[in-house]
C-alpha cells in the first residue's frame, strides 16, 4: 500500500502509527504540503480532488479519509482494533474530528502560520480535553484502560491520540490532565508504536 504522506499532519501520523501497530507495510510518498503547497498541484488533485492528506492507495482502491483508512487496515490486519458493533466508536471518531477542527487547527495556526482564529480553536479544544480527561479518569476507576470499553485498544485510541499527544503545539497542556497523561503513556508503550516529531518515543534512545 502506498501512503501519500505529510510528516507533520496528525491525520497522516494516525495512519503511519496504526499501520505500524498492526504490522501493515506502507510505502511512504512524502508530499511537500508546507511550504510547497504540493497538495494543490494538478497531479495531486487528480489523485484526490479534495486536496487533503493522507491518501492511501492499494491497487485500484483509493482512500482519502484517514479514519476510513484506519478501519480498512484494521479489517485487513486485526479486526480487534475495530469494534464496529459498538456505537461508542462513532462517538469517539467524531470526537477525533472535533479535535482536528479545534486542537489540530490551533496547532496549524500557531506553528505553521495557517489562517484562522487560534484562540477560538484553542478554547474549543480545551473543553474537549477536559471532557476526555473526565471520561478517562472515571474509565480508569472502572478498570477501562482504553477510551472504548473493550480490553483491547481500538482505532479510537489512535484517532484521538495523534491530536492529544501534540497538544503543546496548539498552546495546550496535559499538566492538569493526569488520566490523559497515563493513557498517552499506555499508547506510547503499545508494541509496534512509532513516534513523530513532537511525540516522544517510549525511550529516547529506542530508534524509530
Amino acid at each position: 500500500m502506498i501512503l501519500y504522506d505529510a510528516h507533520h499532519l496528525p491525520e497522516c501520523y494516525a495512519v503511519r502509527l496504526f499501520a505500524a501497530l498492526v504490522g501493515a507495510p506502507l510505502t511512504l510518498v512524502p508530499v511537500d504540503v508546507y511550504p510547497g503547497h504540493e497538495h494543490r498541484s494538478d497531479d495531486f488533485l487528480a489523485r484526490n480532488p479534495l486536496g487533503t492528506l493522507p491518501v492511501l492507495v492499494d491497487g485500484d482502491t483509493v482512500w482519502t479519509d484517514w479514519q476510513e483508512m484506519l478501519a480498512a487496515l484494521a479489517l485487513r490486519h486485526d479486526a480487534a482494533w475495530f469494534p464496529a458493533h459498538d456505537p461508542a466508536l462513532i462517538g469517539w471518531l467524531g470526537m477525533a474530528r472535533d479535535l482536528a477542527a479545534s486542537l489540530g487547527l490551533a496547532r496549524l495556526i500557531d506553528t505553521f502560520g495557517a489562517p484562522g482564529d487560534a484562540a477560538a480553536a484553542r478554547a474549543h479544544a480545551d473543553v474537549l480535553l477536559d471532557e476526555i480527561e473526565r471520561r478517562r479518569w472515571f474509565g480508569e476507576r472502572a478498570g477501562k484502560v482504553w477510551v472504548m470499553p473493550q480490553a483491547h485498544p481500538t482505532i479510537a485510541d489512535v484517532a484521538v491520540f495523534v491530536f492529544i499527544a501534540l497538544c503543546e503545539d496548539a498552546g495546550l497542556s496535559l499538566r492538569d490532565r493526569p488520566a490523559l497523561r497515563r493513557w498517552i503513556d499506555r499508547v506510547r508503550f503499545a508494541p509496534g508504536f512509532i513516534a513523530m516529531s513532537g511525540v516522544f518515543p517510549p525511550m529516547a534512545n529506542v530508534t524509530r
Binding site: P30, G36, S197
Partner: peptide, 15 residues
C-alpha cells in the same frame, strides 16, 4: 521536498 521534510522533522523534534 526531501530536504525540507528532513529538516522540518529535525526542527519539530527540538520544538
Amino acid at each position: 521536498q526531501g530536504l525540507r521534510a528532513f529538516q522540518q522533522t529535525i526542527f519539530l523534534q527540538d520544538k
